[in-house]
Structure formats: C-alpha cells, structure tokens
Design a protein around this nucleic acid. Sequence first.
DNA 1: CTCTCCCGCCACCCG
DNA 2: CGGGTGGCGGGAGAG
Length: 891
Amino acid sequence: MEVNCLTLKDLISRPPRLDFATEDGENAQKENIFVDLSRMAPKTPIKNEPIDLSKQKIFTPERNPITPVKLVDRQQVEPWTPTANLKILISAASPDIRDREKKKELFRPIENKDDVFTDSLQLDAVDDSAVDEFEKQRPSRKQKSLGLLCQKFLARYPSYPLSTEKTTISLDEVAVSLGVERRRIYDIVNVLESLHLVSRVAKNQYSWHGRHSLPKTLRNLQRLGEKQKYEEQMAHLQQKELNLIDHKVGERRRDGCPDSQDPQLLDFPEPDCPSSSANSRKDKSLKIMSQKFVMLFLVSKTKIVTLDVAAKILIEESQDMPDHSKFKTKVRRLYDIANVLTSLMLIKKVHVTEDRGRKPAFKWIGPVDFSSTDDDLVDVSTPVLPELKKEIYGHVQFCAKQKLARHSSFNSEQASERTQRKVNSEPSSPYRQKQGVYSLEIGSLAAVSRQKMEDNSETVAFASQNMMPLPSSLDPAAPLPSPSVDSEYRVSPLCHQVLSAAQTDLKALPAQNGLNGQGGVSLASMALDVEHQPQALAAAQPLLYVPPAPLFMLCGGLQEGLSPGSGSGSGSVGGGSKVTAAEQPPMPSATKRQCRDHEDGPLSLVMPKKPSDSADIASPKTSENRASAPHEDTHMNGQLSAAKAVSGKATTNGFVSSEWGNPCSNTEIEKPSEENESTKGPSPLQYLYVQPPAGLNGLSVLLPSSQSPHAVGLPVGPLPSLSIQYMVLPSPTLSGFPVLCSPTMPGPVSSAPSPLPNVGPVNFGLPGLGSTAHLLIGPAAMVNPKSSTLPSTDPQLQGPCSLHLSPVMSRSHGSIQPGSPAYGSLPAATVKLQQSPVPVTPKSIRCTHQEMFFKTPGSLGDPVLRRKERNQSRSSSSAQRRLEISSGGTD
DNA sequence: CTCTCCCGCCACCCG
DNA sequence: CGGGTGGCGGGAGAG
C-alpha cells in the first residue's frame, strides 16, 4: 500500500497527515477532476477542505466503496468542521475506521510533528478529545510552508551521499510522499538545482548530488557576484534607500538601481546554469533568482541581505520596470527561495532595523570562507580541512560531517575553525581547543563567530546604513565588544541572542541562587536559531540533552535545581544551581521568533584530531554511522528510525532524529550508565538545574555538574568551543517523565567501560521513576579531551538540539567550573532550546514519547509510561536513583 | 496593519 | 498537441 510506504517514509520525513491528504487530494484536484467531484460531494467546499478530502481520497481509493468512511475521514480531516459534527461523525464512524485513522496519524506525525499532531496521537486514549484534536490537526499555514516542505524533502536525501550512491528523485514520488502538489516540489528543486544539489536528468526526474559540490558552487557564485559588483550595487541601493527614506519611500527602488549597474546585471552570466537561457522567462526563473540571491550574500560584507534590496537588484537585472507589483512579486519569490535556503541552513531570517522600522532580511550562515581560492580552504591553517577530514576520518566523521553539513558546509566549518584558531592564538582566550578534538561549528555559529572575528566593521557598516542585524546583535552587550564575550562567541558561536539571554540569566541566577555568576556554567550553548529550523520540528520537540550517560545523575532535586556537585569553583553554581527562568530577560521579539523557528541552532561537531583516535573510537560506531551517514540529514532512515522514534516528535526534523539515531551515542551512553552506577557518587553525575528562562518554554536545563574536566583543559583543537552536556527537561515534569538524553561521549570521569553497541536512542527505564521514565540518549556533543576517543559525536543530533557550550568547562565532576578565568566572564552556557511555537510542555514530551513509542516500540515504549510519568513525582533524591536506575535499565 | 507566502491558474516549452 | 514546468499574483494566515 501506499500507505505503508508512506509510513516508512513518513517516519523519516513525513508531511503531516494533512499533507498526505493534501498530496493526494491536491494532486487529484489539479490533476484529477473526478477527485474534485468527490470532494464536492462531501460538504461545503472550503479551501482547506479539499486537501483533507484529497487525503482521504488518496487513501481511500480502495476504500472509496466505503462511502461512510469518507465522510468520517473528511470530517476528521477537516478541522474547520464544527466540533460537534466531528464528534458525531466520529462517533458514528466505526471503531475500525477510527483505528485506521489513528494509525495513519501515528505514522505521519513524525514529520508533521506538529503539536497538533502529537496531540492527535494521544487521542487514542481519549476519544472525547477527538474533536479538539481534529481541530488541532488542521494544518496550519506553517505546516504547509515551503520551508518545512523543503526540510522534509532534504530529509529524504543524504547531504553528502556517497559517490557511489546515486539518488534519483522522482518529482511525482516526492510530491506524493510529501503530500504536496508537484508545483511545490518545483519550487524546491529549482532552488536546489541552482546550487547544484540536484540536477535534472529527465522529465520528472532529478538526481540528487548532495552538498559535496556546494562549496564550489558557492565559490563560483561568489565570483560571479563579485563580477557583477553586487556588493557595490547593494551598497548603492542601501544608501539610496536611506536617502530615499528620508525623502520618499515610494520610488526609491528605481532610483536605487544604479544605471551603471544595469549593464553588468544584464551581462550577468548565469552562474552555474550554462543553459540558462536568455529568455526573459528564464531570466526570471527561480533558479537564476536563487543564484543571484545567493550571490548577494556571498559578496556582502555583512552577509545580510534585505529583501527589498535583493528584489530591487533582481528587478533591475531583469530589466523589469520596477513597478510596485513587480517588486512585490519579486519579494514573494525571494521568500520562496529564502525558505529553501533556510532549510539548507545557508541563511536565516533576520530583520534589519531602519529608522523607519524593520526590514525583512536574511543573513548568510552558510560557509563563508571559500572565498578566493578553492584550495584556500584547505590551505588554511585549519588543522583539518573539511574534506581532508572526510577522507581521513572516514565514515565516522563523515557521518558527523554530514549532519553538520546540513547545517553548514565544510567551508563554514573551516571558517569556524579558523576563527577559533584565532581565538586560540590569543593568549588570553580562555578557550582552548581540546586536544584531539576539533569542534566544528556550523551554520549560524560559524557565521557569527566569523563576523565577530572579521571585525566590527561589518557591524559598523550596517550601523552606518542603519541596518542592524537584529538577531545576531540582540544583545547589545553580547556583541563583540567585550573580549570575553568575543572569545566565547568565537569559541562557540551561538545565537547571540540566546547567548546573551543566557548570560543574563546566568548572571542573575547567581544572585538568587547564591551562585557565582562567573563560576556558573555558561549556557551559551544554546543558541537557537529558531528560524532556521522547521517550525514544526522545533515546536514539537522536547529536547532533552543529556550529558554523558555516565554522568546522569540528577542532583537530588532537580526540580529544586540543586546540584550538589555543581558547587564547583567559583562559579559553580552554588550547590543549588537552580536558576529561575523568570530572571531571564525577555528576549527581543525577534529573538523569540527566531527561537521558534530555528532549530538549527549552532551545531558543534567534535572531531577527533587524530584520525587514528577517532577511528578507534569511532570504529565501532562507525559501522552504524556510516550507514546513517548517507542518510545523514534526515537520518530519517533506518538507524535513525529508532532514534527518531525516540526523538520522535520532538524532532520534527530529521536533524534531530538523526542525531538521536546515532548509534555512537548510544554506545556511549551505556557506558556512562554503568559508570554511573559504580560511581553513583554524586559528584560525577550531578547536574545543575537551571530553571527555564522564559524563552525555553518551561524547559529546565540540567547541566552536568561534573563535566569532564578535560573539557576545559583541552587545548588543542582549533576549536576552543566546548560542548557541554546538558539536559533540557520540562520543568514541571522533570521528575517523572522520560528524559531524552543527548548522546554523550563517554565521560572522562567515569571510566567508561567499553562502549556498548550503539543502539539508537537508548531508553532507560528508571525504576525510581517507574516504568514511565525513559531516558533518551542522543548523541553527545561532549568530547573528552582526555579520552582520545572522541566521541564521534553525532553531529546529527546537534542540529537544533544540541547544546553547545563553548566556554564552559567543567572540571571534573564538579559542576561547571567557574574556575576557568575566561569563563568566568561568560558563565552562562547557552543552551539551545528548541523553542517551538508551541510551548514544550510535558504533554508535548509525552507526545514525543508516543511517537517514539510508535516508531520504536521496544525502546520507549509504554504508553503506560505516560501515566506513570504523570503520577510520578520525583523527589530530587530520587533523581539520582533514577539516573542510576535508568542506567541499569539501559543495560 | 504589514509581513509572509500558499495556492493554483494558466502560459511557456519541450518532446 | 499533450503534458511537464514554473511564472505569477490574488488573497489569506500570522503576527
């Protein structure tokens, strides 16, 4: 059955149920008239309705005979339908039907992950709620967004496919599987094609190339952009705008286009597409627009391009009359392109503020440094070139890269590394690279670090122009100015906003908690770039990142926020490092927004410096990783499936899931758990509990009080950034419910026994918690400096979820150490939370579990757990137990 | 209100 | 000529 197929796919990257319906329905509608008829029959036609109907249709062709069923489905599907009707219909429907629907939903949710979706899943338990759920299910606009669709699309293919594997993309197939009309797929594919991620081989057929050539493509585009003098044009336009703003907004655009520029633009060689025809139509093609748009970023010093400027340039190039309608249309197209580029983690939305207000803009967060020479990248001082790394490290790293790649290209990595290096070079810089381990920062982080590194000039420039990159610079303080800050940023480029917020919070915390701000953990990790990530994902995902398994000890009362171990050092968050969220300063609206949207947050990849080491460590993992690697991004595939299941809903995106899926992490986890058992001692495992800041949606952050000391010490790598293990839990529920742990590396502290075979996400049943509690372990970002092994961390997870703590170092178990001087300044660790538009509530978590449950029945399993979870009240003390238990459970 | 951008009509083009 | 592509802009959801 298609359904089955879909299901599998869905697991990986599935469009919301609605999508399904939509797919079929829409397609049918457009392509199949008769379908429409069926639709019509049912009820009042609502725009949205058709989709639902179609869904049913799709599914039902076979079913069609069962008319009644249709009605039922439709109703269910149709959110808009009055609840009463829905209920009635539902009730009327046979149980079988309901079950069927439920099943469908279950599978679909993965991608849809929408909260709604999740909720729907829960429905099983509650029939009564069915109606509400239905309503919830209604696909929101966001759910249908091109960006989300693109993510789903990307999730289907590995970012860095093996050369051997050739993937062909059937537009029809994809459209069906993603539940959208083909038209939408064209939009995505065209942009991807412009970057050479795919190429058209035949009608309806594209081949997937992945990101391998992305750096080259970008380089070429950059060159072209330079030739086109886009930078100048942009500057010119911006200036004009400024001037115009004062005078007139209206027609500045025309003015904006420098006459001189026109010729160039006209000449504009179509970058990659040789074929790009001279046709006017083609000139306006999304592909070309996409390339030009990318060029604008690449040539921009600020890496920030406002849509209006981009639209103007494009209009001018196309020689279109700059009338307002044209401009509007152009902007619409740019949004389409931007959505895809955002999904590729190449750009993220930001807003530039002007005197008159904000302007929509996008910031390049992709690789930057490929600039002049192709070889440059390699040449760079960076110890390990991205590509080289690939070769050297082989699968393991490869996998990691892939994951990372999603977020950023190699180049970016390099850039980040470089940056870090610079930082390192700085004597003062507190952060040192860890030996043997390189942490790569991706996406926004890299970009951010880069910016800072590069200089303030960019910022200045903006300022002069009145343009301010809001997202990055939300925090006035945060931005570059303070050295300490810079270093941090450099080290771990996180969303500035987040970071700033986190810092603030942290600072505040000490006071309340009596903790030392400095000593405190720096939560910088969190940067969330909400925008990047698929909204849906973000929303649903409850992310729990747990430190190395071995470490799992929750300080007695997590809820209370005490972390016994934490007291370390100056900053250690004093014994109870409980931080209250309230304290956090509210994030700027922009920030919030981003948070919501982005999941991608900075990713940090840790790579073993030495290949050999990595190999050693990795080897075990490698096998699996490799497998996963191809799938990379989404990972939605196989391995991940389990992970996904775990991550489930939380990870709406493949990213997350993939990470979770990482076997390595699992392995690591297990060890830790054992260790924990042995060590149980409070020291190692304790976590600092940080209450969720407002932005976190009530998620609590647990920081391992005892981070491996090594972390701090690691000097080596170019990348100073440290990754800190952390857990994010819904505060209310800390005790009871399942905890998702990010995969961790074997903690240095505990002697980790040989890692166990990787298992996807591991669920630990905590006895204390009751069956309910599960620990999901994701790939850990942590690297042990000591342990030569590196954890080949799962890059995958990192995605949005992973928390990257750069500066923080935890010495040995003791909680975060304040000690590190540098850190002191930056106590806060940024935790990247996925903020989903929907608040992450315990409920959502539950949902996640459910999803997971579905996916991987074995591991997570029990629905019952939920109940238990609820029931469970955990005392802090119990927490440790739980941990221990969990570890045992893991076994 | 503005910002986004989904949706799908229908023109373009190719085989 | 039929069907794949994809430009285009109305209009509505989201903020």
